[in-house]
Amino acid sequence: MEMNEQLFDTIERYLLNEMSVNEANNFEKKLASDPSLSEMVDMQRLEHESLELILEDKLRANMKGWQTEPPPPTSGGYRYLWLLGGVLLIVGIAAYWRWSGDSLPTKIESVPQTPIEEPQLPPPDLPIAQDPPNLPPPSDREEEPEQKQSPDLSKEYLAMATGAYEFPQEINLKASGEDNESVLDAGITAFKAGDYPVAITEFSQLKPDIGEAYYERAQELLGHSYFQSGQYAAASEVFSTMAADQEFKEVRQYGEWYSLLSLLPDHSKNKQQIASLLELITNDDRHNYHQQGIALESKLQKLR
């Protein structure tokens, strides 16, 4: 049998599973009775495997690169959050000037030796510092521990934490599709709508019996819901659990970074923990958040 275009296409369709069941059965009968056709199919299959190997090698090379790349910046679907951030920033700056200018408490004015830098816009690679949505105005934050320290510095630490915070794009915010995924639906829908109190309620009530993978995802989103709603201590508790993960380096490092950011607004209370987490992240140049840690450290040094 000689190879022609039609036969070539027929073999291609067979190899690519494009034949109907009947057609494939008939073709296989021919194969069984025609050794030369069978040899052609074998050779064409081998050709396919060669072409697959090109794709496989390329994918392996890509995965090698992806393994070493830092977590990518947030973009796309969350762009609206940064728009909101921009608006909040303007409001925040206005509030800052009003607070630090006209009505700055006298005891702060009495420490002029401490250079306090003016609030600065973050470098272009970081998102704009923002007050998280749903955060009560500064005067109402009785439980916020930064009240115990210099109001200016607490604002700075808060801005630093929210400025360095990026919602990780890897989190799957798909509300359904996986068999048991519906247990997360309500929380995810609320989270996507920026309704963090509802998201917190929904994710908090989920227990490990929903399955390990789902429970972990619920916890992760709970941590981000707490952070986005300004409940940093609660966020830190959730992320600390991830930071204690002994099984997966990625989970541990992820937990360390978000735990650090959650501890930062209450700097005076969490000073020691912040320092050790920062040291852990900046000393390990293979840490997934190494670059972010270095940037944060440099900002913290300026503040000291």
Binding site: W66, P72, N172, A213, E216, E220, F248, E250, V251
Partner: peptide, 8 residues
Amino acid sequence: FTDLSWKS
């Protein structure tokens, strides 16, 4: 590759 849920 980067979604932790697939990997973990």
